[in-house]
Write a protein that binds this DNA or RNA. Structure first.
Lengths: 215, 215
DNA sequence: GCTAGAATAGACAGACCTGTCTGAAAGGGT
DNA sequence: ACCCTTTCAGACAGGTCTGTCTATTCTAGC
């Protein structure tokens, strides 16, 4: 994962003068841009190294082969998404708000002008049964699933695992619709559905109906 | 689209002796098998014609180029899915049953041992911004959307368009989860969520709660 | 029986891709 | 000042892909 280099030059160049990023960083940035926009299968090594301004040997020394670069690219994107969602959720207080807040974080992601669908779904579709890619996807999807299940439990769902799975379906569907239908409002649709599902999944509170804000 | 040949040999061979299918049919069958299992980008022309037992020139005479074959493959799959869903829905009577029946039809599709995700999603991810593929996908997705919206209206939803979009999210999400998570129960999860969304989308029926069978 | 249109097998061109290798330049640490 | 690791530039091999083309064989209708 983390290479050892950056500290040395970061110590030498505290913050002054951009200090050209390492070959690894430039490769990852290029991979993130080109692989995501055009697909991991379509984009060849030559275009990556040309865009990164890096020699081919550096790529193979750093990542071993193309699959290694694809894997690093997916890991990078997964971490980035996790950070974006986690950070967005700090804005919300109640479990219910936090649960629905995932879809607002998603809204911020899919309205990005160069959003192009879930990188894991695309890479998995392109690479077929490549196990390395499937592993990365499984890990990321496991995190999303656990996030939803945990939030469902905190929000008081009677069956947090079921609600978590349902919310995950909405989340995936919204990502997919944003790309396939070019519909950046998909996350709003999903959020509304999530709210209805959550209400339906709460234990029947005596006679006070759904939830206080909704008489 | 439709070639002119098949009638002549179908007239000559009424029903007796299998009468080897035309080159077009064999190509389409091979494309459907190989493209779907391994991806439209991964599978080359040579493997298609070898598997179909057809000469390369026949392929190019019939479909023009590879994109034409991919397009025909997607149209074939779209029609097949439409038929499967439409036929499955004839089993149900009430609008509510028919609406939820879509997810049962989906259950039959995704539990097929060689189910490998939605062909349109995979092809779109592989081919990038290929407009021909996007057109086929748009047409199919429009049909699914209209199906859900119509069923939502028949079932009495206050906002059929919103409910239709929500159901489509669940449907897409279940297809995706079936492939990415190798979870054939995804359609059941989606069905349960759809039932809850439908209940929540019905007009508040005086005081009679959820759905007493729709009076 | 004959002929015209289809289908077949396969070579071929031109392009692209991954991964390896050589050989030189650069730049910080001691 | 020296060294040593990293990086650069690019040629190269071996393979695969699409699409074209030639030349032969099959088949159906007159």
């Amino acid at each position: 994962m983390a290479t050892k280099a950056p500290e040395t030059q970061a110590a030498k160049r505290p913050a002054r003068q951009p200090a050209r990023p390492s070959a690894r960083e430039r490769l990852l940035a290029s991979a993130n841009e080109l692989f995501y926009r055009e697909g991991v299968q379509t984009v060849g090594i030559d275009r990556i190294i040309e865009h990164a301004g890096v020699a081919k040997a550096s790529l193979y020394n750093t990542f071993g082969n193309k699959e290694g670069l694809v894997r690093a690219y997916l890991a990078f994107r997964g971490n980035r998404n996790r950070d974006r969602i986690t950070r967005a959720l700090t804005r919300f207080r109640t479990p219910r708000e936090r649960l629905l807040g995932v879809f607002e974080a998603q809204g911020e992601i899919i309205t990005d002008p160069d959003y192009n669908g879930c990188a894991f779904v695309s890479a998995s579709a392109e690479a077929g049964a490549d196990s390395a890619i499937a592993d990365e996807a499984d890990e990321y999807r496991g995190w999303v699933r656990a996030l939803f299940t945990g939030l469902a439990a905190e929000a008081g769902a009677t069956d947090p695992d079921l609600l978590g799975r349902q919310l995950h379906l909405l989340y995936d569907g919204a990502n997919l619709s944003a790309r396939m239908d070019r519909d950046p409002t998909a996350s709003s649709t999903a959020r509304a559905a999530a709210a209805a599902l959550l209400d339906a999944a709460l234990p029947p509170a005596a006679d006070g109906p759904r939830h206080p804000a909704r008489p």
